[in-house]
Structure formats: C-alpha cells, structure tokens
Nucleic acid binder design. Structure first.
Length: 279
DNA sequence: AACGGAACCTGAAAGC
DNA sequence: TGCTTTCAGGTTCCGT
C-alpha cells in the first residue's frame, strides 16, 4: 500500500531542521506573511508575528523531539509540523504554494534571497513566536530526552517505564518519556526489538529496554538515511511507496517469519505487529 | 494521578 | 460518474 499522508516524526523533523538550517541560518528576515491565522495560537494576531520577525537574523535552527526552534538575534520561533506540516523553499515572489500558511522571505549572508514557506493542509501544526526574555514553550520544556540530541539512557528509561502500567506502545507516544517518538517510529522500533506493543511498560526487563532503545535508534537512522536532497521530501510523501518495515504493511507477510502481520488499536492508535515474532 | 476518548482539521481513498 | 463515508494521527482537553 501507499502512505497517504506526510507524518513528521523525529527523523522527518530532523531532516527539516537540517534543510531549514541551510536555508535560513545567518539569514536576515525581510518579510513575513501569515496567510491563515489559525496556525497561530488562539488570540495571536498575524501582525504581531510579522512585527516580531521582520528585520531579525536567524542564528540557529534547533530541534527537540518533533519541535523545531529557530533562534533569532532577538527572540525565538517554535514550529511544530503537526501531521501535515512542511517547510519548502521557492523563489522570492513565486506564486502562493498550495496549502501555504506562512511565508518568510529572507536574505542570506551571501546576499542571495530566498522564500521559505510553511505548508499545512490539516492545520495541526503550531507556529509560536517567543520574545527575548520570555520562557520557552511549555511543550518544549516538558519534552523527555531526545534520542539523537541526548541519546537514550537505558537505565533511566527502564526506571521510567517501571512506573507505568500502560502498554509500552502508547507509553512511547508520551513525549515526556522520549521526545520525538510517534506512531510509526514506535511501531517499527517494537518490531525491531521483537517486543509485543501490548506488554505493560513496567514488565519490560532492562535487557528488553536495551533492545527497544536500539530498535528506536535503528528506525530513526533507517528513515534519516532515506531523507536526502536539498528539498524536504519526506519518505512517506503521498503517492510514494511505503518505505517502512511493518507500518502500513498489515496483512502482508512478516519480514521475519512470513506469517501475516496483524493490525489492532492501542490507545486509539493503529498498531501493526507480528503476533508470532513480538513477545 | 492515570488513563481513555473526543476534538481539532481536511485531503485522499474507499465505499456505494 | 459522483456523492458519502471513512481514515490518518500529534497534541490538547475533558471526564472518569
């Protein structure tokens, strides 16, 4: 089957970070347009966002979990891609891209100009400007360790999971446990670790948490390796073949034992698993 | 406190 | 063919 939606999780957001970094780091923001105020937090006006950004220089593009943070010479911008958010680059003055919600025109250090645009048909993303001196977003501050930025401390993760009776799959979706793990990553990692997603988190042994940790890293690296090129082309772009190992492959043979992969719902989220290989 | 479930949102796919 | 329904899921909020 094909994957119908862009679903940005840690690897996709990391790819977006690297690309945005090339496009905007060191650049001066000339003009900002907010086409749809619904992408902003309730009560925040486009005018306020425009005022906060125009004339600023982007000093760094950072990521924790699924959040992007653009550090400015004064203030910061937080961007969450939700389920269908994406940053693209066009020529300055190019006509409005489909689903465009925000436009940032900037001049790089080498004086070349570029237009960077945020697209988000579903509007599940967020775009938040924080002024100099104000605290970071609560959602950012409450993130758990990031598997790439911080690495995974197996003992610490084991201790954290020991307090949870919820099944391991929905627990992994809690951004306070590990930042950036989404439904696809959790599904893939549990398969690599051969752990049944329905197992209570607190029942996982230290050895199993180690396997899970390596499974998460493997799933991240595998997707990141496919994210190449100058444009942000997510591996699960609509119409592209399914790049994942078991996600979206329900009913098809398990890559390990060849028996059909099952699909069930855990914590309201679709979960694919091999009931024979994952224990 | 922990947990389940609904709401948010809309394009694409599937069903009819 | 074209209309209707279903599905996808990150996060937040609300009720139990």
């Amino acid at each position: 089957m094909q994957i119908a939606f862009i679903v940005p999780e840690l690897p996709e957001v990391e790819h977006a970070r690297r690309t945005l970094s090339r496009w905007l780091e060191g650049a001066r923001i000339d003009a900002v347009t907010v086409q749809d105020a619904r992408i902003l937090d309730h009560g925040v006006t486009p005018a306020r966002v425009v005022r906060a950004l125009e004339g600023r220089r982007v000093t760094a593009v950072e990521r924790r979990g699924k959040w992007l943070r653009l550090a400015l010479d004064s203030g910061r911008v937080f961007s969450h891609l939700g389920m269908t958010g994406k940053w693209v680059r066009t020529e300055v003055g190019a006509e409005e891209t489909r689903f465009e919600k925000i436009r940032v025109d900037a001049t790089a250090r080498d004086k070349t100009r570029r237009s960077v645009r945020y697209l988000d048909p579903r509007l599940f993303g967020r775009f938040v400007v924080v002024k100099e001196g104000e605290a970071d977003l609560k959602a950012w501050n409450e993130l758990g360790p990031d598997p790439l930025v911080d690495g995974i401390d197996v003992s610490a993760l084991h201790a954290k999971l020991a307090k949870r009776r919820l099944a391991i799959k929905p627990t992994l979706l809690d951004q306070g446990v590990l930042a950036g793990v989404g439904n696809i990553l959790a599904t893939e990692a549990l398969f690599y670790a051969r752990i049944d997603p329905r197992r209570p988190s607190r029942d996982l042994s230290r050895v199993e948490v180690g396997k899970l940790s390596r499974g998460i890293r493997r799933a991240i690296d595998r997707t990141l390796a496919k994210e190449t090129g100058e444009t942000i082309q997510y591996v699960e772009e609509p119409g592209a073949p399914n790049p994942f190992t078991i996600y979206g492959h329900e009913g098809e043979p398990c890559p390990s034992c060849s028996r059909p992969l099952a699909k069930m719902f855990l914590g309201g989220r679709g979960t694919v698993l091999c009931v024979h290989c994952q224990r």
